[in-house]
Amino acid sequence: MNYVIIKNALYSIVAIMLCLYLGKTVHHAFGGLPGSLYGMIVLNIFLYFKMINAERLKATIEWIIKHMSVCFVPAGVGIIDHFDLVAQHGLAIVVVIFISTMALVTAVGLMVEKLSSASLENQSSDV
């Protein structure tokens, strides 16, 4: 068993929990975003100012992100209490998701295509 992997995993867990509790403190003090999102920003700040060693987090965080969707299963199972809602409005829900998703894909795609060719021209004129 590789000792470094375990040490880095513990380091990552402590770093994440520290950021989470700092984030929750911010949430209690100011409200606004959920505590976990403030925690995400806190982690970013720590990484930016090199107060947390990014290299040591890498492997653990990649593992977490790869496997985290199992944690969403209980929330999704909650649909069991909303069968009548799905039976009544399922089609409308799918339509809303389809239209808004394709609208977002189209809007971002077209804007980036137009703007990035424009900004590339600007850059070359700067040089």
Binding site: I13, I16, M17, C19, L20, G23, P34, G35, S36, L37, G39, M40, I41, V42, L43, N44, L47, Y48, A54, L57, K58, I61, I64, I65, M68, V70, C71, F72, V73, P74, A75, V77, G78
Partner: peptide, 23 residues
């Protein structure tokens, strides 16, 4: 949901972990 509460509780650290790819 009550029995698997520990699984849902991991949602919060998972959000924090997303700070790494953002960085």
């Amino acid at each position: 949901f009550a029995q698997t509460k520990e699984l849902s509780n991991l949602l919060e650290p998972a959000v924090v972990a997303l700070g790494y790819p953002l960085y």
